[in-house]
Design a protein around this nucleic acid. Sequence first.
DNA 1: CTAAACTTTCAGAAAATACTGAAATTACGA
DNA 2: TCGTAATTTCAGTATTTTCTGAAAGTTTAG
Lengths: 189, 189
Amino acid sequence: MKLTTELENMILHFGEMASRWGFNRSVGQMLALLVFSDEPLSADDIATSLSISRGNVSMALKELHSWRLIRTHREPGDRKDYFLANGTIWELAQQVLAERKKREVDPTLSMLRSQLMTSEQDDMPGHARQQMQEIHDLLELFNHWFDDMQHMKPEHLKALMRLGSGVGKVLEMTDRLRPKTKMKAIGND
Amino acid sequence: MKLTTELENMILHFGEMASRWGFNRSVGQMLALLVFSDEPLSADDIATSLSISRGNVSMALKELHSWRLIRTHREPGDRKDYFLANGTIWELAQQVLAERKKREVDPTLSMLRSQLMTSEQDDMPGHARQQMQEIHDLLELFNHWFDDMQHMKPEHLKALMRLGSGVGKVLEMTDRLRPKTKMKAIGND
DNA sequence: CTAAACTTTCAGAAAATACTGAAATTACGA
DNA sequence: TCGTAATTTCAGTATTTTCTGAAAGTTTAG
């Protein structure tokens, strides 16, 4: 696996961005390498291409598996494992977002939920409790919305995104035309 | 600023989550403290409440300012600066997302853009170039959509999120009724 | 202008995170 | 089942990130 300078630069860039995306440099570089490779690569291929240790590759592969971003391919009569990206770019992005939601949102939501449940009329200042409720409600809204979006067909989701805020206009109009539907929450400012 | 155990726990939680949200523990704790406080706090108040050094507070305040998450309040006849959260929870969340987009998406998008512009018919493998194009298109779509959403009124945006994937149904229906609008991209799978 | 009150900076220390490589373990073909 | 090829683990090391506290800088009342 000889890399051109340009591909190499792109892989290095993904390595540098990795920590901002929730994983470490090696994981980022390896994901890029596998996404850009048109054939599955062995762990040794990866270690050689990126000049990192075999042990590091093994740990990073585990991490990538746990994010469901790669899968293993086995060649009959060959003991080696070969690895490749687990789906299209769109699917990988969905997977990353889902995993990040799980790590970045869910723990806080559950902490807020239990806090707001248990403490009834505490010695906690009213303003603090109110702010916690706001954060809770925002995260809950986000969570439901996100789950819903994840279940939409990619093509529908893409079309919806392309429509952008235009969707608001369409819904307002629809609402005016059909005031008995559940969309009536729109336009109440 | 004496903290109750429960408030304290919540602040510690925000500190632990901070690194996943793009800042460090002190910044996370301080943001939580200021969000939950019903009055502006001085740098010394903060250092005392959180048991961290004055220097650390100063650096974290700079960071919070750069994210536009706090603002400074000055009391006439008092030399101290006092700090408070810069808006509602919703506004703070928007601000965090905007800043994260800037740090997590924009650099990669511009790198991909220049790569795809300059290299015409390179020695770069076709599959790699194709994948880069896919990532580029996805990030561009996301960026436009995100900008659009940011310009919507919070109440409209909340209503839209509450509607969830229901919006797809509404649009499909609207589309069937009004096939000449630009929403016709919906439903082509 | 001076001095006290407050804030910022930054070198070094501490803590957290990532990486290496050799040893242990596992998986496979014969 | 055995031997070997491959993978995983993890203790030790290296690197990166964060934090401290003292010194330098800034602001303001008098």
